[in-house]
Design a protein around this nucleic acid. Structure first.
Length: 452
RNA sequence: GUGGCUGUAGCUCAAUUGGUUAGAGCACCGGACUGUGGCUCCGGGGGUUGCGGGUUCAAUUCCCGUCAGUCACCCCA
């Protein structure tokens, strides 16, 4: 039933949903920082021309754009790169190179929603500016792969498919593909897995490739190693620099310890035209979902967008497909319950106000504390019923009041059917002093409060 | 934007060839088990069957439209 709810393609985040999102964000930030990237952000709403100027009308049809009350043509951001380019360009001379920035923007597009593709999503953006070395390319991909590792996904669950446009251009030139045919050939390679080979061949013939050229293009996706490259193109003098460069890239990935994830795949093209060098995509190993992540080197884009001639590379990783994959692998099950640290239970021997004082003291110490939020129940409800509430709330510890001066502290969780364990008695007054309070709780086995 | 499939309680699903007041489990709320627990038992709230029209004595069921979801195409930052 769907009478009211979020707009099509938008999501409500219930606490359990937000907990999953937060888990993804945590992994993103943790790994990015581990590689010494720093976080930035920009406006979610930008001038429309920021996006139409770059690639013409290519994505204009999918922009979530409108006119604001001041008559300005504006758009919710569909991607972060133009904003990033503007910000970097504005301080290009002052920033130490290479620039290593990341961001977690919420992005928007206006198109029909389908699985893994909504009108709104969060996308980690990681970019490096000012470094032409393939060491930077390797570092960048390593970040993306390390995030998979951080989330519990190994080489059996996720594959990184890598290619390089400079390499591909060199190989296509060796085959005899002309500049004018390049775009069409890219298109065929991009779809070669999803489209019958007959169609691919027809399209290649349609742009003027002779049968021998068609077969050599169709064979490019079979190249999966440096050995394959040497075998098929080792004799082509003009292709050697690009082949060697790609080899260095793979070598760095090996040294960084992520080689097990990486597959050479020359059919990885990436849709947008601005990539100039390495390109890569991360996929679930079963190939059931859309790409988890995509990126590469775009050495000319900062010049076009921001007017500064700096090499750059980056990737985007969305939360939607990633979330589906984590759900499939059952990696979302733990750590979702955010219950209180303590549940304070009243007894017939204490005044209700004592419950409030005990909870307040725990909270001042930094613990999350809860109790039955109903005065009548606080006076009369049996402790068994209160403990039942504590369980449902997911509390970690019970503080059962003995009277107005003392309480028993014990862990709530226990094996089903096991008898209740005896707790440790503490003096409530001790909680008012941090030093004595933490000491008393430590004696009962309670860890220090979490800080986050 | 184009086409296919699907819409019944918060969730998963029932309801005879079209037939009376649309049911169950889980979840939620309350209570009992006469003061330290996941069990068990009892009770309760909750639906204009997505919405609107049509056919019919009668529509959850058949037809049309619409909205939403989903899949494919287009596209993919």
């Amino acid at each position: 039933m769907q009478t009211k709810g979020p707009l099509p393609g938008f999501r409500d985040f219930y606490p359990e949903d937000l907990a999953r999102r937060t888990a993804i964000f945590r992994a993103w930030r943790a790994v990015a920082r581990r590689y010494s990237f720093v976080e930035y952000d920009g406006p979610p709403l930008e001038p429309l021309e920021l996006y139409t100027a770059k690639s013409g009308d290519e994505i204009a049809g999918q922009l979530y754009s409108f006119e604001d009350k001041g008559g300005r043509a504006v758009s919710l951001r569909p991607e972060m790169t133009p904003t990033f380019a503007r910000m970097v360009a504005a301080r290009a001379n002052a920033l130490p190179k290479p620039v290593r920035w990341f961001s977690l923007p919420q992005l928007f597009r206006y198109e029909r929603a389908q699985r893994g593709r909504l009108r709104e999503h969060f996308q980690l953006n990681v970019d490096i500016v000012g470094e032409p070395s393939e060491l930077a390319d390797a570092e960048l991909l390593c970040v993306a792969i390390d995030i998979m590792r951080e989330l519990g996904l190994g080489p059996n669950g996720v594959r990184a498919r890598v290619s390089d446009r400079r390499l591909l251009n060199a190989l296509l030139a060796a085959i005899g593909v002309t500049e004018g045919q390049l775009g069409a050939v890219y298109g065929v390679l991009d779809k070669i897995e999803r489209q019958p080979h007959e169609i691919s061949r027809e399209k290649l013939e349609a742009v003027g490739l002779v049968p021998n050229q068609v077969e050599r293009v169709m064979a490019l996706p079979d190249i999966s190693s440096m050995d394959d490259l040497d075998r098929d193109f080792g004799h082509v003098e003009a292709a050697q620099p690009a082949i060697a460069q790609f080899g260095r890239y793979l070598g760095h990935l090996h040294a960084l310890g992520v080689e097990a994830w990486v597959d050479v795949d020359l059919s990885i093209v990436r849709g947008l035209a601005y990539y100039t060098g390495t390109v890569f995509e991360l996929f679930d190993a079963r190939g059931e979902l859309r790409a988890i992540c995509g990126g590469g080197r775009y050495d000319n884009l900062l010049g076009q967008l921001g007017g500064v001639d700096l090499p750059a590379l980056g990737f985007g990783m969305g939360d939607v497909v990633l979330g589906e994959l984590l759900k499939e692998h059952g990696l979302f099950d733990d750590g979702l319950a955010e219950g209180p640290d303590f549940w304070v239970v009243s007894s017939e021997h204490n005044a209700p106000a004592t419950v409030l004082r005990a909870a307040a003291a725990l909270r001042r110490l930094g613990y999350a504390a809860e109790y039955v939020l109903n005065e009548e129940k606080l006076r009369t409800q049996k402790s068994s019923a209160q403990i039942k509430s504590a369980e449902r709330a997911g509390a970690a510890w019970l503080m059962v009041l003995r009277d107005d001066a003392r309480a028993e502290v014990r862990p709530l969780s226990r094996a089903p059917g096991a008898p209740a364990r005896d707790g440790t008695e503490i003096v409530l007054h001790d909680l008012l002093d941090p030093e004595r309070g933490f000491a008393a709780l430590a004696e009962a086995g309670v860890p220090a409060p979490r800080e986050d």
